[in-house]
Design a protein around this nucleic acid. Structure first.
Length: 547
DNA sequence: CTAGGGTTAG
């Protein structure tokens, strides 16, 4: 028997009580009286209770209450699913949906948007596809909200063609549908299609403008972004944060700070954009100063802020600061199991010299991702434990993780450091052959450096000729230095002549060049180089050989 | 159901 609360006097009074709940203790009292009056099966009351217990109390508390309902209606399932979703419990959203179907409750058009959102946030496009099919079988796939969340889901997962299909098949679209489609184009970096859609939109709100703004910021087109920003009919803190982040990523922290000071209603995200900007631009002290400024404004730091702070401490290599941040994180309610947090924490400890802590963090984590491995490998390397670093990299490969460009930079640097020519060469080759990554100039430079310093100057020369992009002063310098060191004057001259074509050079390379020419007794070239050095005001480096 | 911030290298 179900009682309908707004018809029974006790249910109505409890509804009033529930709406007045501000703390978890209040909620527990109300729960007690729900049990006392035998209203545990009142779906309306429970539907009010669930979202409240999510915000005021814990996830397990709300689950307990929900589990006591014998036959939850579709309406009640929807309340649970939506509440899970709104509180970012996405895996719970998906499992609640599975339980709902197992219980035989029929999902409707109010069920799907939250479930689809949970799916897009955890980025599982294959599950999204099956949800699409499921919504189709329930006959709700053409519902405005369901279709809009499908566009959002496909767009966020990069399935732009599927998103567009849903969009084109809609008979009625809201401003949110249009914005979701726009976000899809922005997500895949297609700012041209994004702009086209933006111009076609029948109506726009501030979210649409912000999405367009982000589109330009993402491709680094700050002048277009600025153009949009200046003509927006309405700006909010999100618009400002997008621009702050854009300027920060472009290295213009003066502009970023200027906008930050003018941003209305600065929240933790706006602070985060500024702080991480300073960190990414190698100004850890400034980042720290802004963090203290934020604390004085009583803004509570979240895990994003703390990750930036860890990176700042790592850059400074300041052990006491690192220990302070480490204990700060332990005391706060930040989830320490998040991949980003662990990786940053490990890197900070390794760089600040607390290897025991770094290793402990690594050992305790069972599901290790690429970044965590790379941080650990790098950490071992900077403490002179290159062999262990290489072994760990191989272990990572055995676990089936696919290295990216950064991972290869790390491992090639390690090999170069330890002088492991064969291993380095093997990794370098496997980049293209096994992982389909074309090596960047930095990867070539690392390899050239390794080959040169271990005496394989001819191989290094063959490789340097294949290097893409502008001539890399470091790589050429390393090769030149090796020719001199190993007395290969013939190759030295070839390299020198080639390098000379790339003028102007850096100071060290001019010095090496004149040394090579001197060894070959090409005095005319020596004086040519020296006059170039005088012209460019290059000081002779102390300790280099005299002629 | 739509908009903003984080980690690893050089």
């Amino acid at each position: 028997m179900r009682s309908i609360s707004h018809q029974s006097s006790s249910g109505a009074s409890i509804t009033t009580l529930l709406k007045g709940c501000k703390r978890s203790e209040h909620l527990e009292q109300v729960h007690a009286s729900i049990i006392h009056r035998g209203l545990e099966q009142d779906h309306f009351l429970i539907s009010l209770f669930i979202p409240l217990s999510h915000t005021l109390s814990t996830l397990s508390y709300s689950s307990t209450v929900f589990l006591r309902v014998l036959t939850p209606s579709t309406f009640l399932w929807n309340t649970l699913i939506k509440s899970h979703c709104q509180n970012s419990f996405f895996s719970h959203t998906l499992s609640a949906f599975a339980r709902m179907k197992a219980h035989g409750a029929l999902p409707d058009n109010f069920t799907y948007p939250s479930v689809i959102k949970a799916c897009s946030t955890t980025c599982k496009p294959w599950e999204g596809k099956s949800l699409h099919g499921s919504a189709f079988r329930c006959g709700v796939h053409r519902d405005l909200f369901v279709a809009t969340s499908l566009i959002d889901m496909y767009g966020k997962c990069g399935q732009i063609v599927d998103a567009r299909k849903v969009f084109d098949g809609m008979s009625e679209r809201s401003v949110v549908s249009w914005t979701s489609m726009l976000v899809g184009y922005v997500a895949v970096g297609d700012v041209v299609e994004a702009k086209k859609l933006f111009d076609e939109m029948p109506q726009r709100n501030v979210a649409s403008w912000n999405a367009m703004l982000q589109g330009f910021v993402k491709v680094g087109d700050l002048s277009c972004a600025r153009g949009v920003f200046d003509v927006m009919p309405e700006k909010n803190v999100v618009s400002f944060t997008t621009m702050i982040d854009g300027y920060a990523k472009a290295g213009d922290m003066v502009a970023a700070r200027f906008l930050f000071d003018r941003a209305p209603g600065k929240d933790v995200v706006a602070w985060s954009a500024l702080i991480s900007g300073y960190v990414q631009n190698g100004q850890p002290n400034q980042a720290l100063r802004v963090f203290l400024e934020m604390e004085s404004m009583k803004v509570k730091p979240d895990e994003f802020i703390l990750v930036s702070l860890m990176s700042a401490s790592a850059q400074l290599g300041h052990l006491e600061l690192a220990q302070w941040v480490d204990s700060y994180v332990s005391k706060s309610c930040i989830d320490l199991q998040q991949d980003h947090v662990i990786a940053a924490l490990l890197d900070m400890n390794a760089k600040c010299g607390n290897m025991e802590r770094a290793l402990k963090l690594f050992e305790e984590k069972t599901k290790r991702d690429l970044v965590l491995y790379c941080s650990m490998i790098q950490g071992l390397s900077i403490h002179g434990r290159g062999e262990e670093a290489v072994n760990l990299f191989n272990k990572m490969l055995m676990e089936g993780l696919s290295p990216d460009e950064v991972a290869f930079t790390v491992i090639l640097t390690v090999c170069s450091h330890v002088g492991l020519v064969d291993e380095g060469w093997e990794y370098f080759q496997s980049m293209k052959e096994r992982y389909y990554i074309s090596p960047l100039p930095d990867h070539y430079a690392c390899m050239v450096d390794l080959l040169s310093r271990s005496g394989h100057t001819r191989d290094a020369y063959e490789l340097i000729k294949l290097m893409p992009g502008e001539p890399h002063a470091g790589a050429w310098g390393a090769l030149l230095g090796a020719c001199k060191l190993y007395g290969d004057s013939e190759l030295g001259e070839i390299v020198a002549n080639r390098l000379f074509e790339f003028e102007p050079l850096n100071a060290a390379n001019y010095v090496l060049l004149s040394d090579i020419y001197a060894a070959a007794e090409r005095w005319i070239d020596v004086s040519l180089v020296r006059s170039k050095m005088r012209e460019r005001n290059v000081q002779k480096i102390p300790g280099s050989s005299k002629i």
